[in-house]
């Protein structure tokens, strides 16, 4: 025979999906939020995002080439995504050198030290963010006020995030609705993104658009976002109903801080989330409860990143103890 036939076990066709496609899908879904960040934070947002992405790719390349001496896989989009998420998780006025260090920690410690994509336990972007938050608390918590379409390099006026304002105010014995009205924060601003906060988390609208895109493309499943946000809503709602003065209302919790960014884009990170639907729901519920606990009773005003990282650690055990329901597991009595 002139040409040799290929022999392989079935199936002989495969879906038109690949790791880069999944990664770039998430990146596309993050684009609306990216544009919103440029709209409100101008050139600073662009610079931080660019620095984070470039340094993530560079560190991954260097580590793979010189430390691990393995195949270079920077084109699979995972490093770009990590960079983008790091940028989305920092304030718009963060010095670029901190962004570079954060990227190094995210890629080097968060990802490559575990063996690269697929082997890491914790979400790399969040490892980077938490590292920066703990190491550079001042820079990481000075939030520039949003200035619409201002591309100048002048130092921005800093403000605080709604969550920080509320936390501070409650500590001083003020009441929740007084703080909100005093600060002049409206829910519509929170929804659109006209408020202080990390680059990517400000606009609930943009994040929701991306989330719908991800769900439609079947890149993520509904389990984690719905369970995280649902739990946050219910749990904060219960607290709010017990005392409307010292606890923020549930809508406020969902619209501020990293709730949506975390629930839709970071908790759903494939590598660090459980693989079974049941596990994903428990994972989401855990994140929701921990977030509200940290926000309401903890020292930090925001708790999504800590909550996700803590629940990441439970993923292996969730995978072991939450099995999907097998087909034919329960014998169905066939009597008509």
């Amino acid at each position: 025979m002139s040409t040799q036939l290929t022999i392989s076990p079935s199936p002989h066709i495969s879906a038109d999906s690949s790791i880069p496609k999944l990664m770039y899908g998430v990146i596309i879904a993050l684009m609306p939020a990216f544009f919103v960040s440029i709209y409100f934070y101008g050139i600073g947002a662009l610079l931080i995002t660019f620095t984070a992405i470039v340094s993530c790719i560079l560190f991954e390349f260097l580590i793979q080439k010189y430390l691990l001496k393995s195949k270079i896989s920077i084109s699979d989009g995972s490093a770009i995504l990590t960079g983008l998420l790091i940028a989305f998780n920092v304030p718009g006025s963060l010095p670029l050198w901190i962004v570079v260090i954060g990227s190094l920690v995210a890629i080097g410690i968060g990802k490559m030290s575990f063996g690269g994509l697929g082997s890491n336990i914790f979400n790399p972007a969040l490892v980077g963010r938490v590292f920066m938050l703990i190491s550079f608390p001042v820079q990481m918590t000075s939030w520039p006020k949003p200035r619409i379409l201002d591309f100048s390099f002048t130092d921005a006026i800093t403000g605080a995030t709604p969550l920080a304002l509320v936390k501070e105010g409650l500590k001083n014995g003020e009441q929740f609705h007084d703080i909100i009205s005093k600060a002049g924060i409206s829910y519509s601003d929170m929804f659109i993104g006209n408020l202080g906060g990390s680059l990517g988390e400000i606009s609930a609208l943009a994040l929701l658009i991306g989330g719908i895109y991800l769900l439609m493309k079947k890149i993520i499943s509904w389990h984690i976002p719905v369970s995280v946000l649902g739990t946050m809503f219910v749990f904060s709602g219960i607290l709010w109903l017990t005392n409307k003065n010292i606890y923020a209302d549930p809508v406020f919790h969902l619209l501020t801080g990293g709730a949506l960014l975390g629930a839709i884009y970071m908790a759903t990170d494939m590598v660090t989330s459980p693989m079974t639907p049941k596990g994903q729901i428990i994972f989401g519920v855990g994140i929701g409860i921990l977030t509200i606990l940290i926000r309401a009773f903890g020292a930090y005003p925001e708790g999504v990143s800590f909550a996700i990282l803590i629940m990441n650690a439970f993923v292996p055990i969730l995978n072991i103890y939450t099995k999907p329901k097998r087909f034919g597991e329960i014998k169905i009595q066939s009597k008509e």
Binding site: M1, Q4, L5, T6, I7, S8, P9
Partner: peptide
Amino acid sequence: PNTNIYEGADNCTVAANLYGGD
């Protein structure tokens, strides 16, 4: 001489269960 190309998992038993060999 090879008569065909095997392209499955790199595992002898998988290949042997599939067919006689390449």
